[in-house]
Design a binder for these strands. Structure first.
Length: 495
RNA sequence: GCGCCAUUAGCUCAGCUGGUAGAGCAACUGACUCUUAAUCAGUGGGUCGAAGGUUCGAGCCCUUCAUGGCGCACCA
């Protein structure tokens, strides 16, 4: 099976065999790594002064040989550092060993620190250790790895070849941390709720369905955790949040991955206006911690995340932009107005859906600076409270930044009787063929019957948050392993 | 689902009007003890995404398929 290996790979197998023949294990069990690249560079003065021995370990990235000496770079988790291997320092035997090293190998180097004639801080190797042989060549050093398919499928290569990718994902982690710190410092408690749910809800989406053998029952992968977090509010926890992987059985494009991340948070005794204030503070805080600035250079323009953000009711935003006023219209009239405005609302099944479609077509793309769109139609907000002053509307907002929805929040509906009616309306939608309307959740309604305090809830997509703060064009660039079609591997046993 | 584009050496890419495939890096051999895209001399490396078709002859033209990218549609 191996006769057909390309030479470039066979040579590495040969070197591995040679190492074993020489009694050297090509895959070491451990190594005492005392320093990282950046630590050595940061502490150069004292390390070179003291002539202290340092041990670095990492992946060999490049070799520049000069006969009886060589320079090389290794990559560890804090960056790159140069090493210098000189025959009369390491000895003949170790220099022979060095000849069996390839770019891509994990190696360890012990030695002292010095600065070369050209000023680069370098570890002068005194002993070399093979830590793990690399049997397959890395992408080329100069042009790097550009093929997006390989970058997504083999993210490890992307991380080796493209350091800015490492930075981006580090930033993703910083964002998670900033959110956690902010919520924790405001008395929120991080919780976990079921991913496998007997009834899905909390959003509009088609779910993934799977089967639980032990109880012989079908279960759904959650599309949201909303209904479980609200049960915790019923239980008196007052302030809860969850970093939540959700699953939606929908298409793939540059802003949708079937598996994605959200944060949902719920706060008892707040309403949606309190939540707007909170969102502004949170966003400012994240931007400062992660980017050190309120300004984001985005492909759609410079965005200023400093609050307060503009707040405007959805119908006003539409009227302002298009001159079309949906106030006081019914379903039929709204459809007429939408068609006049050139928006296709053929498959929209109620008044709110029509209005929302016009908003999405005509207004949303231009909401570049942070904008709260408030007072959504009640018939597309089944889990939100009816507006206290405006019948037919709900106490709900969505925040738009760079033309994308970056959060959805409302004063939570806590009247179990009204909530039941809302669920029943959803069932009517389902019967009309809306396969995204969620089913009625009797267990959740029962929880509300015990009493839920007035509460505001907020959910926002983490992937989109990361895209915004890193100016990423595609969600695949901010998810380590985005969903991909399986690679075809020769024979196909199916069929 | 629709449209456009891409798929050639391990990687990044050329390849004209159809005439049996090329560069840089990587690899291999040799020289070289402060280089850093090291340098110099030499060598090897390909099922041109897959399958059909047209042709005396296909990397190139045609058809179908696969995968990916971008855009549109869908999508809270």
């Amino acid at each position: 099976m191996n006769e057909q290996r390309p030479d470039i790979i066979q040579h590495r197998y040969d070197k591995m065999d040679k190492l074993r023949e020489d009694g050297i294990e090509p895959f070491a069990y451990s190594y005492n790594q005392t320093h990282h690249s950046a630590d050595i560079i940061g502490n150069f003065e004292s390390l070179s002064e003291s002539e202290e021995k340092v041990s670095v370990a990492g992946r060999l990235l490049s070799i520049r040989g000069h006969g009886k000496s060589a320079f090389a770079h290794i990559l560890d988790r804090k960056g790159k550092i140069q090493i210098y291997v000189k025959k009369n320092v390491v000895g003949d035997e170790q220099y022979e060993l060095f000849q069996l090293f390839d770019i891509g190998d994990f190696i360890g180097i012990e030695g002292t620190v010095f600065k070369t004639r050209t000023g680069e801080i370098t570890v002068n190797a005194e002993s070399l250790t093979m830590l793990a042989k690399s049997l397959y060549p890395l992408p080329e050093k100069w042009h790097g790895l550009a093929d997006k398919e390989i970058r997504y499928r083999q993210r490890y290569l992307d991380l080796i070849a493209n350091q800015e990718v490492v930075e981006l994902f580090r930033k993703r982690t910083e964002i998670y941390k900033a959110i956690r710190e902010f919520l924790d410092s405001h008395g929120f408690v991080e919780v976990e709720t079921p991913i496998l749910q007997p009834i899905y809800g909390g959003g509009f989406a088609r779910p993934f369905l799977t089967h639980f053998n032990a109880l012989d029952m079908d279960v759904y992968l959650r599309i949201a955790d909303e209904l479980y977090l609200k049960r915790l509010i019923v239980g008196g926890m007052e302030r809860v949040y969850e970093f939540c992987k959700d699953f939606r059985n929908e298409g793939l494009d540059r802003s949708h991955n079937p598996e994605f991340s959200m944060v949902e948070l719920y706060c008892a005794y707040w309403d949606y206006k309190d939540m707007m204030d909170f969102y502004e503070k949170m966003m400012e805080n994240i931007a400062q911690k992660v980017n050190g600035s309120y300004e984001v250079e985005h492909e759609k323009g410079k965005i200023n995340l400093k609050g307060p953000y503009k707040r405007i009711p959805m119908l006003d935003a539409i009227a302002e932009k298009t001159g079309v006023d949906f106030a006081g219209t019914d379903y039929e009239k709204a459809r007429e107005l939408a068609k006049e405005a050139g928006v296709d609302v053929e498959n929209k099944r109620n008044w709110g859906q029509v209005v929302e479609e016009v908003f999405g077509e005509k207004v949303q793309p231009d909401l570049i600076q942070p904008t709260f769109i408030t007072d959504f139609p009640a018939d597309i907000s089944p889990l939100a409270r009816p507006h206290r002053e405006k019948p037919g509307y709900s106490e709900r907002f969505e925040i738009y930044i760079a033309g994308e929805e970056l959060g959805n929040a409302f004063s939570e509906l806590n009247d179990p009787v009204v909530q039941r009616q809302k669920f029943e309306e959803l069932q009517t939608l389902r019967q009309k063929g809306d396969d995204e309307a969620p089913p009625l959740d009797e267990d959740f309604l029962h929880a509300l019957e015990y009493g839920m305090p007035p509460t505001a809830g907020l959910g926002f997509g983490l992937d989109r948050m990361v895209m915004l703060l890193t100016n990423s064009h595609s969600i695949r660039d901010v998810i380590f392993f985005p969903m991909m079609r399986p690679e075809v591997s020769g024979e196909d046993p199916e069929e």
